[in-house]
Design a binder for these strands. Structure first.
Length: 550
DNA sequence: ATTAGGG
DNA sequence: CCCTAAT
């Protein structure tokens, strides 16, 4: 009987459980959601190589060269007075191993700088669409600096509107953050990432107000996934004014491009900001491969082990990646948002929790495993491993997370081992807890407040009159299909407050006054549906009743 | 994924 | 709005 060694690279793999939740991008989209047009595809490896190349470019001194990675090319822009930096030959692949260390604590280890100009947004989008990945969701995070060792030096002054908003973020040293992940056979089931449940518990035990907000937040990840995060605080007033000045009746408005109006009005208003040639300098310290679990027979050769590890990494990188961006612990999904809006160009302290991550490009077309970058050797070894696993009866000495090991080889699809990376390791380091989060930071975590306009209230009331108070999903579809920022939870909450508002005296009400007529309807509908909970289940009341209700 | 309800 | 718990 061949015993297996379970090798685990990295030793603090579980230190960040709260961040272990995998992206939900995989999940089925809500019906009322709009589909995002597919992006171009490109070779993930090439991408990584490109990124790596870019990152390896700089030495400590040359801080001002601007290296922008655009798909398969590396575009360099050099400030007049700076020494150009040699570009890494494109053919040179990133270093996957950290010399002297077991495994690959970092794909790219040299301190380096990635300076991004205005066009960052576009560039990032270029990345965001690589191949795809069937059922595994590795994440690789490139943390930008770290709290403990990050030196945030502002080239400009601190004033938000100062003449120089440039921010230079860089880390002094390459402090070693461990990584973890698993290698597991490709199975139907997603990998046993760090248990959701456990994570939730941990999350639950953590009051977000007082603690770092995990960037994967159970529920929130659901709708924030699709309903973009709010704007930076600083811009809040500005946005509020916009939405306030426009009543949004999405139902009547029909399908329009989301936010088109907002964007356009924003442009004109924000012109003074945007026009200025402010740049944000970011330095991606390194991309790390998270914790990795490998099960391999004792009789396997060192060479095969090495290849296995290589295979794992390669698979992670080659199975389709896209770039994710995290700001203040929150994933920024809206690619159309500007850095300014996202807060990246704001004060320095916003950058301490900025992170890039490579995640599976699940939005795009799935690619058959055969097209991945598995080498023949790797496949051979993996096959060998699989066979051995079969021989050794079943069962994996591998405890916990690797419960799938036992099934190694039970499926034909398990020909290749798919490395699974726990998101935990990849997450950017949580904000430094030493310093209390500022109100601003806290607020930035929230979605922007968007008071319901009278028109929206009207739409909501009408929908509830017809559908009742227990079918918010339907209400959403029916009356707010195009209001992407209004989730059914929001609608439910709004109804709650409407009912409350209707019950209190007009003097106690705040905000834009809701016509009494509407409030009356709210109470009526509320009363009606309170009594007809039975019917509310599926059917809509006869129009006659509804009208009577109205 | 949705719903319900407290914070 | 946020967050959870329970569906």
């Amino acid at each position: 009987m061949v015993s297996h060694k379970v090798l685990k690279f990295g030793d603090d793999g579980y230190k960040l459980p709260a961040q272990a939740r995998a992206p939900r991008s995989v999940r089925k989209k809500r019906i009322y959601e709009k589909k995002i047009p597919g992006d171009d595809k490109m070779c993930a490896i090439d991408l990584l190589a490109t990124v790596a190349g870019s990152l390896l470019l700089e030495g400590e001194s040359s801080v001002n060269a601007c290296v922008v990675v655009v798909q398969n090319t590396v575009k360099k822009e050099f400030p007049a007075e700076d020494n150009p930096v040699k570009a890494l030959p494109y053919s040179e692949s990133p270093r996957l191993f950290d010399n002297g260390q077991c495994g690959f604590s970092s794909v790219i280890t040299n301190p380096n700088h990635l300076l991004v100009g205005d066009k960052v947004e576009k560039e990032v989008q270029g990345f965001s669409s690589l191949g795809v990945n069937g059922d595994v969701k590795p994440d690789i995070v490139a943390s930008i600096g770290s709290n403990s060792s990050t030196e945030v030096g502002a080239c400009g002054n601190g004033s938000p509107n100062g003449s120089r908003d440039d921010v230079n973020l860089f880390s002094r040293n390459d402090d070693d953050e461990n990584f973890s992940g698993y290698i597991r056979p490709r199975m139907n089931r997603p990998v046993p990432r760090i248990g959701d449940r456990r994570i939730r518990k941990i999350l639950a035990s953590r009051h977000w107000k007082g603690d770092a907000k995990p960037w994967y937040c159970s529920k929130r990840s659901y709708y924030l996934h699709h309903h973009q995060r709010s704007y930076p605080i600083k811009k809040r007033k500005y946005f509020d004014s916009i939405s306030d000045s426009n009543s949004d009746d999405y139902r009547l408005q029909g399908k329009t491009h989301k936010g088109s109006r907002t964007i356009s009005s924003m442009k004109s208003r924000n012109a003074s900001f945007v026009s200025r040639d402010h740049h944000v300098r970011l330095r991606i310290k390194s991309f790390r491969v998270p914790e990795l679990f490998i099960e391999i027979p004792e009789t396997a050769t060192v060479g095969s082990l090495k290849r296995m590890v290589m295979e794992a990494v390669t698979t992670i990188l080659g199975d389709g990646l896209r770039v994710g961006l995290m700001v203040q612990g929150k994933k920024v999904r809206d690619d159309s948002k500007t850095l300014l809006q996202t807060g990246i160009s704001e004060e320095n302290n916003h950058l301490d929790s900025l992170g890039f991550c490579l995640e599976p490009g699940l939005e795009t077309t799935p690619q058959p495993l055969s097209s991945s970058y598995l080498s023949e050797h790797a496949c051979e070894d993996l096959t060998l491993c699989r066979d051995n696993a079969l021989d050794s009866s079943h069962q994996p000495a591998a405890p916990s997370p690797a419960d799938s090991f036992g099934k190694l080889g039970t499926t034909d699809h398990s020909r290749a081992l798919i490395p699974v990376v726990s998101a935990a390791m990849l997450a950017p380091r949580p904000p430094n807890r030493k310093f209390k989060r500022t109100e601003q930071q806290l607020a930035a975590q929230r979605r922007i407040r968007r008071p319901f306009s009278v028109t929206e209230v009207e739409a909501l009331v009408q929908a509830v009159e017809h559908l009742g108070t227990g079918r918010w999903r339907d209400v959403k579809v029916r009356a707010f299909e195009d209001a992407d920022h209004r989730t059914y939870v929001d609608l439910k909450d709004k109804w709650k407050t409407l009912v409350h508002t209707a019950r209190i005296s007009p003097q106690q009400r705040r905000g834009e006054p809701v016509p009494q007529e509407l409030l009356d309807r709210v109470l009526k509908a509320h009363a009606y549906w309170s009594q007809h909970l039975m019917h509310q289940l599926q059917t809509e009341p006869p129009s006659s009743q509804v009208e009577a209700l109205i």
